[in-house]
Design a protein around this nucleic acid. Structure first.
Length: 498
RNA sequence: GGCGACGUGGCCAAGUGGUAAGGCAAGGGUCUGCAAAACCCUGACCACGGGUUCGAAUCCCGUCGUCGCCUCCA
């Protein structure tokens, strides 16, 4: 079986064959850094992070570039609005986004090119386009000559004639054709500018991506990604520019993620219906957002709602349930229970690969993981020991890791001070219980929260054996106040964060 | 107006020609001192109307609805 990817360019799902065996070059359009990013941007980064992780899992050496557009009208506008300069404003939001990516467990790209660092390349490319007649100068601006391409519109499925029909094309007498787009923009007074043969100015938006791809990945790449709102005009224009210069097909596969929606519309700055990444992470885990993304097809829109987030959190709990240690006092499961577990663990990997090979069908891949979790829990209930559970849990961790889920990273120590207070409280109520005095004493001398919890569960065992139900319930309630969930089973008690 | 996507159980959603994955929620049960968790059981004729086919959620046509792009946008 081979990996198959839906290609926007051909509108078909095609078998993926990299240009160079074993290597994948992937370019993904990143944000324009003029404001804090929202979870729609995060969705895009997550989608391509999953693709990249899976390609690497599949054995490919992935060269992954994601750009930052750090000079454009909006940045200039935002900077003048707050009285700062465009460069430092862009720098600020780049740093912020980089931090978000890290928190979201997105693997670092191989390179993060920026428009302002590619100026020389861009000028050189524009010059070549002019030489070839692919572009023309108009009062300091340089425009790409769209009518020169007989296949302009092939990505978005538009024809130039159709675009005339649209009423929203601005009239500009300097352009030969209304759809001609700027590859170089003359600077207005006070704007950031670079010297060029056509006068001071800055690159147009589309040219920067072509330049960065050429500079960092080559004239031909395997995968070009981005949100589906970029298909036209951005990616269409990238193709036009790049192919006019190289004379070769630009990207083999065009992957586009669907839009994050909120209250029935695309989440965007201009509509104002957005949740920033920061706002999301203040309330929810990075895994939760990733889970939401994984549960759907990356190509389809994802409608955000509190309920959907909650469902994602619960689904994560379920996955994590498969990673719990054996029940206290587990004595080993019967042979057939272990055989069933082993069979499921061994079947999981190929099933996962089959799902992901089908255009990164992460929802189907998750189903494989949930099936594995059920089998692990079944074995645990049947008395499997940690050693018996471990191989299947290792598979679960490995495969969830391919999706970028961390599952276990949330581990932390309980607060020792609060636990000591609880020990003192219990000691008061247990006054005269000589059998438990030793455990209480041991608990008092523990310094770490984790060790204290071991003692507390020991204590709980003694209390339950004496059927001091009111006290054992009180103990559980107190711990729950700190988010510690105590779970009792026949062999003893265990705890986890809840 | 042009191009495109989508409409599957209460919610999220996979499946795109052979008789509907998975998750969440809900109800019942097992286990438990109780609880929680886990495990077991229970639910859909796939927007609507035609058509093609031995057979369609899955292909074609139409209708309704939702969304995206056509301007900056992940």
């Amino acid at each position: 079986m081979a990996l198959r990817i839906y290609n926007t360019l051909t509108r078909r799902t095609e078998e993926f064959t990299p240009l160079e065996p074993g290597m994948v070059s992937m370019y993904v359009c990143g944000p324009t850094v003029y404001a804090s990013a929202h979870i729609g941007h995060a969705m895009s980064s997550l989608v391509f992070d999953v693709a990249r992780r899976y390609l690497e899992y599949r054995g490919y050496d992935v060269r992954h570039a994601m750009n930052y557009t750090d000079v454009d009208d909006k940045i200039i506008q935002a900077a003048s609005g707050e009285g700062s300069d465009p460069t430092s404003l862009a720098e600020h939001y780049i740093e912020e986004y980089a931090q978000h990516l890290q928190e979201l467990n997105v693997l670092p790209a191989t390179v993060y090119p920026r428009a302002t660092q590619e100026i020389d390349n861009i000028i050189e490319m524009v010059a070549r386009m002019l030489e070839q007649g692919a572009a023309y100068v108009a009062e300091g601006d340089v425009y790409y000559r769209v009518e020169r391409d007989e296949d302009y519109g092939k990505l978005s499925g538009r024809k130039l004639e159709d675009m005339h029909a649209g009423a929203r094309i601005e009239v500009d007498d300097r352009k030969e054709h209304p759809m001609d787009f700027a590859v170089w923009k003359a600077a207005k007074p006070g704007e950031p500018a670079w010297e060029s043969p056509w006068g001071p100015g800055r690159p147009g938006w589309h040219i920067e991506c072509s330049a960065m791809v050429f500079a960092h990945l080559g004239e031909q790449i395997d995968i070009h990604g981005g949100g589906n709102d970029l298909i036209f005009p951005h990616h269409e224009n990238e193709i036009a520019q790049s192919e006019s210069l190289s004379g070769k097909p630009f990207a083999q596969v065009w992957m586009h993620n669907g839009m994050m929606q909120l209250s029935g519309e695309k989440m965007s700055k201009s509509l104002g219906n957005l949740i920033t990444i920061r706002e999301f992470l203040e309330k929810h885990s990075a895994d939760a957002l990733r889970m939401m993304v994984l549960n759907t097809s990356y190509r389809h829109p994802l409608t955000y709602s509190d309920e959907v987030v909650e469902q994602a959190e619960r689904a994560l709990d379920r996955l994590r349930s498969g990673l719990r240690p054996a029940l206290p006092g587990a004595a080993g499961a019967a042979a057939e229970a272990l055989a069933a577990l082993q069979a499921r663990a061994e079947a999981a990997q190929p099933a996962f690969v089959a799902a992901m090979d089908d255009d990164f069908n992460s929802a189907a891949a998750l189903a494989v993981l949930f099936d594995l979790v059920r089998q692990i829990n079944l074995a645990r209930d049947a008395g499997a020991t940690d050693a018996e559970l471990e191989p299947a849990q290792a598979v679960l961790l490995e495969l969830s890791g391919v999706l970028g889920l961390r599952l276990k990273d949330a581990e932390r120590e309980p607060e020792a001070a609060a636990l000591h207070a609880l020990v003192d409280e219990l000691a008061g109520e247990l006054d005269g219980q000589t059998e438990l005095a030793a455990v209480l004493q041991a608990a008092r001398s523990e310094q770490s929260g984790a060790a204290l919890m071991v003692r507390l569960l020991e204590l709980r065992k003694g209390i339950r054996e004496q059927k001091l139900w009111a006290l054992s319930d009180k103990m559980r309630d107190r711990l729950a106040e700190q988010g510690i969930l105590v779970e009792d089973s026949a062999g003893g008690s265990s705890w986890r964060w809840g």
